[in-house]
């Protein structure tokens, strides 16, 4: 985790020469051959669609209890059965998709923004700023991820909003390290030296010449972090620190259902599958994305 991924070649970021494939076309040519990558990409697309329209296609209102059908198994009326209050689990999973994706995206996005900013500054200016930022990252790295998140929640209090903050904070050092590594490499490249020589300001150099070169790394890592962020957020909810009842967050559903594990296993199996497939899709997608974006890997 602490060793940066191989940086993309700076020339990739430049404008495409006439007659050559553009980087996007090049990427697509490589990526579409990867069946697993395309499949997981399609699954993520499905998740996004469900996240947007989920509440309106859910067969039942997710908060509606039915005390005459508690803990009923899967059936036509309830494709994933009902929970301990007789609520339709399938509907709750659909509504929960938006929550999990929102927490995943927003927390990684926040972590990526701050991390990238710190990484660029750290790599470009070096000296004491670099030392300061990297030691700060070391401190954050020293905690196992979930422990750091629990610590932050302990200060901020439970709740989904605070889970987003906690997960994003623990993503900051990862992005900072990666971007710093790329920045160091790009800073030494000829075109940056050229830009410096013609008198470009530091801000312009960072924004126009270095940042685009780090993007492919950020995109890959962004995708892979989302799976992890969803899992961490669910773990926090499982521990009672995240989503509060009756929010149908997947981790919270697993936590509520574990009391019925040996009597009504469907209560945990279906949210478990949803969580499992989502995290798997983001991880596989990230993996394949890296291969496709990495110019050193030729097909």
């Amino acid at each position: 985790m602490s060793s940066p991924l191989p940086p993309a070649s700076p020339t990739d970021a430049g404008p495409a020469a006439p007659g050559r494939h553009s980087p996007a076309a090049e990427f697509w040519r490589k990526f579409r051959k990867k069946k697993v990558g395309v499949a997981s990409g399609l699954f993520i697309l499905l998740l996004l669609i469900v996240a947007v329209i989920g509440p309106s296609i859910a067969p039942y209102p997710m908060e509606k209890p039915d005390y005459n059908h508690i803990l009923a198994g899967a059936s036509f009326a309830h494709p994933a059965g009902t929970d301990e209050f007789g609520r339709d689990i399938f509907s709750r999973i659909l509504v929960g998709t938006r929550i999990s994706l929102w927490v995943g995206f927003s927390s990684v996005f926040l972590g990526a923004v701050f991390g990238t900013f710190l990484g660029l500054i750290s790599g470009f200016y070096g000296k004491w700023i670099d030392t300061l930022i990297m030691r700060f990252c070391d401190i954050l790295f020293a905690f196992p991820g979930i422990l750091l998140a629990i610590g932050i929640i302990a200060i901020l209090g439970p709740g989904l909003g605070n889970v987003i903050i906690a997960v994003s904070i623990y993503g900051i050092p990862v992005f900072a390290r990666l971007v710093r590594g790329n920045t160091l490499a790009l800073k030494a490249s000829v075109y940056v030296e050229a830009a410096t020589t013609v008198g470009a300001k530091n801000g312009r150099i960072i924004w126009k010449h270095i940042f685009p070169g780090t993007l492919s790394t950020i995109i890959v890592y962004f995708t892979m972090r989302i799976g992890m962020a969803i899992l961490t957020a669910s773990s926090l909810s499982f521990l009672g620190l995240g989503a509060q009842p009756p929010t149908p967050e997947w981790g919270a559903m697993l936590s509520n259902g574990r009391a019925y594990l040996n009597t009504s296993p469907h209560v945990v199996i279906f949210p478990g599958i949803a969580l499992f497939l989502s995290v798997l899709a983001f991880n596989l997608f990230g993996d394949e994305l890296r291969d496709a974006l990495d110019p050193k890997i030729r097909d």
Binding site: L231, S235, L261, N262, P265, G272, N283
Partner: peptide
């Protein structure tokens, strides 16, 4: 992902143990 697999296998083995 690994954690989930673990959770599942733990659950399954617990069911077996109980039976």
């Amino acid at each position: 992902m690994g954690r989930i697999l673990f959770r599942f296998s733990a659950a399954v083995s617990m069911l077996f143990a109980l039976t």
